[in-house]
Design a protein around this nucleic acid. Structure first.
Lengths: 199, 199, 199, 199
DNA sequence: CATGAATGAGTTTTCATTCAT
DNA sequence: AATGAATGAAAACTCATTCAT
């Protein structure tokens, strides 16, 4: 039962661990978690099956690694967007936020879906996402307050806005409904959210 | 390999097929699709493992059956809500809609999550949901138009409203964010959507 | 985690379970527990690997089954020997006991060794053997007492006798020492034990 | 595939080889041979996994090394006991022998069990033990003869005594039978063996 | 129609041993 | 000599699906 997971310090090892995660990322996104097996991950990563277990406890651990990559890819730009906000000009903030989120979703849609799936079967994954949303909501809210926005109901507003923006990102990325004009929809949503904050 | 799936005509058989679907529903919702095996479904349904393949092509086919149940449970009340609308009084329509959706989610949240998960791995599931959304959007839009609401951008408004309502239903059902006052959030969302339609 | 082990009631199934145990018995005895794999057991039993897990929780469970067979084979004749004792004539009892034990060992030596091995790695196996020894000691002691033998120190005498008899059985079965005349040794031991009880 | 096992001459190397053996000893004794892996041995020994194969052909080779340690620890004191015998006073010799063996067992019981186990799967281990027993029996017998004890049947007597003493050592060390008074048992055995030699 | 035992390919995981550095 | 990352064969176990009864 001795759990001996290498925490790689050398460059080559770090690269290898990263390669395994990237391979997992790619395959999980393409075929879903349960339809991917470790042998395949190893093959795509160009390593032996054994070494996978040198870097990860098990398959789920690879998923967790991939999730962190996903979070890095998707949330980092969004957090950096936050830093750029310097006034309460929601007519600028909202479209910019939608833009960021849609773009982040577009490049990582498949992984997003896989991870969202796993939320239903894995507590940890679900918890990680919940805490991320919390972090974003709080950071955004504090930012607005620091710029003079009234504190009252700000968490609820921000969280609602985030939900709405995520919805529209989904719509645009999956583009399943031919009867919807996504440009129109985005305009609607933008106005709606601007009003939410400016009321 | 002749695919001989019984389309049961006798009452006893119909009941049996239904029992299998219900068992699948329960288990898929509780533990997810991949963590449920057919033997378990058969056991919960009180039938033999073999007969499951008399009524269904494969495991996925049971999921599809369960999905129809889910749709029946969740969408039927929402469709019937539609019929009750007789004026363009959005201050009444929106809260009622939110109420219906939240309630439907509350009783079927687990299955919703499972099905949503599977969308990423199963085209059919994804397509079924898309077409349902389409149907709902169209029905609702036509209803509004028939009551005199302007046709322009109505699909986009309705679809956006549906997205937002789903989001808030999720929030309330999973209740993961202790920093959110869900009553406040619901009020915000209601006002926001009323304005969307009344502008 | 649903542990569904068939407890076979039908004759065919019982036979199959028995066949698996016998295959395990044979292979464990020939090659040791750790050098035998389940696929091999299945093959020798003439069944699929899967069904093995229909009848047994895991590989160790097969060993436990084999252990019970071993116990049946080895201890049953010894217990029946007990029933045959009708007087305190140790000059007859001791040689007869030695005879039985040596013969039982000779036909099951390999399995004995394997099981004894496992005692060091498996608590259950060890405990089962200890309780068997206890049962035998107690039964034998009660028998002697019922025939009028003094109760004092009888457990210790019987247990000692059992140990000694086991030792000599080992010696005869494995026959590793060319400088030993096993016939002489058996005579020595017999006399020694007769005196132990007759003193 | 050139088998280049270092026969270490330098002190540092000898120490390292010794450390590996001691680590193997400890782990084999604690968890059994098959439940111990080489990486663990290396770790406990404070060396790299690779270098283990610089000093040993394979895992089994480490076991053989550990066995020699065991033999050194257990048999050396017993052999030295032999040297101390200067008369045929069995009332002294027997208790002293029992004492030595019990004590040796008490400190090395776990390894004893492991090695005994391996006898069934490893010819070399079995042979080594057989030859040790032979050596002891012969040495002891010669000693007795040199002190005037009749040569006839002496090997068988000594070997039997050794067996009995080992049995009682086992009993005392593992102490599995609550219904046995081990002090009584030791007295019985002592008397029995004294008589065996004095008859 | 119904049963549930049986199949066997497929999956995760381990570990003795090798090898580049 | 020494390291410890890497290998990959082999093991235990699962489960959707089939089939004899």
């Amino acid at each position: 039962m001795a759990e001996n997971i290498r925490e790689p310090k050398q460059k080559r090892s770090i690269e290898k661990k990263e390669r395994i995660i990237e391979a997992g990322y790619k395959l999980f996104a393409e075929k879903g978690y349960f339809n991917t097996n470790t042998a395949e991950i190893a093959k795509v990563a160009g390593v032996s099956t054994g070494i996978v277990y040198g870097y990860f406890h098990d398959k789920r651990d690879i998923l967790l690694g991939a999730m962190e990559i996903y979070i890095r890819k998707v949330f980092t730009p969004i957090f950096s967007l936050l830093d750029g906000i310097s006034s309460l000009d929601f007519k600028k903030i909202i479209p910019s936020a939608i833009d960021h989120v849609v773009r982040a979703h577009k490049t990582n849609a498949a992984m997003h879906t896989t991870l969202h799936s796993l939320s239903s079967e894995d507590e940890i994954v679900a918890a990680r996402f919940a805490s991320l949303e919390e972090e974003m909501t709080k950071k955004m809210s504090e930012k607005l307050i620091s710029l003079g926005y009234p504190r009252e109901r700000v968490y609820e507003k921000v969280h609602t806005a985030m939900d709405v923006i995520q919805s529209i990102a989904h719509e645009e990325v999956y583009d399943k409904h031919s009867y919807i004009d996504y440009f129109v929809m985005r305009t609607l949503v933008t106005d709606m959210l601007v009003r939410l904050f400016e009321e």
